[in-house]
C-alpha cells in the first residue's frame, strides 16, 4: 500500500516504464482498436499494475469500454471489431489468434455495467465457472462458492437461500453476485465496466468498499463515469479523450490517482475532472 511505489509504476503515455514483471499484470503497447474502418482507440501504451485498482476515466465515446472489453476479448463478439498492437497478460499475447480464449477469460474476469446473473439459483450462478471444466467434488464446490460469496460481501445476505433464484435479489446484490461469479474461477485480473452505474448510492458505496478489499488479491481495472468514484476507489487513473480530428479515443494522461485529481498535468484532464467538459 505504499504511495511511493504506486507513483513510480504509473507509466507514461508512449514510454512504458519497465518495472519488475510480477508487479505488472497487463501490458499494452501501441494498441489500436477498430470497428470496421473506424479507429475507436488509437496508440495506447499502458502498463497496468498488479494488485492495484486502475480507473479509466474520460468523456462518453472516448473508447474506455472498448479498451476494457478488448482486454478479455469479449469484444470479439462484434464481428467488425479488430485489435492491433500488443496486449499481454504476463507472457501471454492476448490478441494472438492461437490464444485460448477460455484461458484468457478464466484469468481475466469481468463484471458488467448492468448486473447480469443467469436465471438460475444463486449457488449455480457462482458455481457456473467452476463446473465448466468438468466435475468438481460437491464438497469443494460448496467451499469455493462460499469463499467467493464471502469475497463479494454477499454471503451473509444469501447463505440461507442459495437454492433460490438469483433474480430475486436486489440490483446491488445481483451485482455482488456477478462479482462472486467472476471471483469463483480465481482470476488474476478483474475488469469492471461501470459496475455501479445501474445501482443506487448505497449499493454503489458497498461495491466500492468491496473493490477496495479485492485489490489485495486481484488486479482491478475499472471504467467509470463517476469522478468521485475514481478518486475514492482507485490507485492509478488513466484519462482518455476523443481526438477531435479523427474521433479516435486515446490516453492523454496516466498517473497516481491523487496526483491526477489534485495536480493534473494535462489541460484536458483538468477540464474534465473539474467538470468543464465531457
Amino acid at each position: 500500500m505504499s504511495t511511493a511505489s504506486r507513483a513510480t509504476v504509473a507509466s507514461q503515455v508512449g514510454s512504458a516504464t519497465q518495472v519488475a514483471a510480477p508487479e505488472l499484470a497487463l501490458r499494452l503497447a501501441n494498441v489500436n482498436l477498430y470497428y470496421g474502418s473506424f479507429r475507436a482507440v488509437k496508440d495506447v501504451t499502458l502498463d497496468i499494475k498488479a494488485r492495484a485498482i486502475t480507473a479509466i476515466i474520460g468523456p462518453s465515446g472516448c473508447g474506455k469500454s472498448t479498451l476494457l472489453r478488448s482486454l478479455n476479448r469479449i469484444n470479439d463478439r462484434t464481428p467488425i471489431f479488430r485489435a492491433e498492437g500488443t496486449l499481454k497478460l504476463g507472457d501471454i499475447d492476448i490478441c494472438a489468434p492461437t490464444t485460448d480464449l477460455v484461458e484468457i477469460r478464466r484469468r481475466i474476469g469481468m463484471v458488467f455495467q448492468r448486473p447480469n446473473p443467469f436465471p438460475q439459483s444463486i449457488f449455480d450462478n457462482v458455481a457456473f465457472g467452476l463446473k465448466l471444466n468438468g466435475r468438481m467434488p460437491r464438497q469443494q464446490l460448496t467451499e469455493v462458492v462460499e469463499q467467493s460469496l464471502r469475497g463479494a460481501a454477499l454471503w451473509d445476505d444469501v447463505k440461507d437461500k442459495l437454492d433460490q433464484s438469483a433474480l430475486g435479489l436486489s440490483g446491488g446484490q445481483q451485482q455482488r453476485l456477478c462479482i462472486a461469479r467472476a471471483l469463483a474461477t480465481r482470476p488474476e485480473v478483474l475488469l469492471m465496466d461501470e459496475p455501479a452505474s445501474a445501482l443506487d448510492p448505497i449499493s454503489t458505496l458497498r461495491i466500492e468498499e468491496l473493490i477496495n478489499d479485492l485489490k489485495r488479491q486481484y488486479t482491478i481495472v475499472i471504467v467509470t463515469h463517476n469522478m468521485q468514484q475514481a478518486a475514492r476507489a482507485s490507485d492509478v487513473t488513466v484519462m482518455m479523450t476523443m481526438d477531435t480530428a479523427d474521433r479516435a479515443g486515446n490516453v492523454v494522461e496516466v498517473g497516481d490517482t491523487n496526483q491526477i485529481f489534485t495536480n493534473p498535468r494535462d489541460r484536458q484532464t483538468e477540464e474534465y475532472i473539474t467538470g468543464r467538459f465531457g
Binding site: 463478439r77 477469460r105 458488467f112 447480469n116 443467469f118 465457472g129 456477478c178 467472476a182 469463483a184
Partner: peptide, 17 residues
C-alpha cells in the same frame, strides 16, 4: 439479452457451454 451471453463467455464458457 446479450448480457447473458457475455456473462457466460466472460467466466470462460465456450460457445456450446
Amino acid at each position: 439479452p446479450e448480457s447473458l451471453r457475455e456473462g457466460a463467455l466472460a467466466v470462460g464458457a465456450t460457445r456450446w457451454q
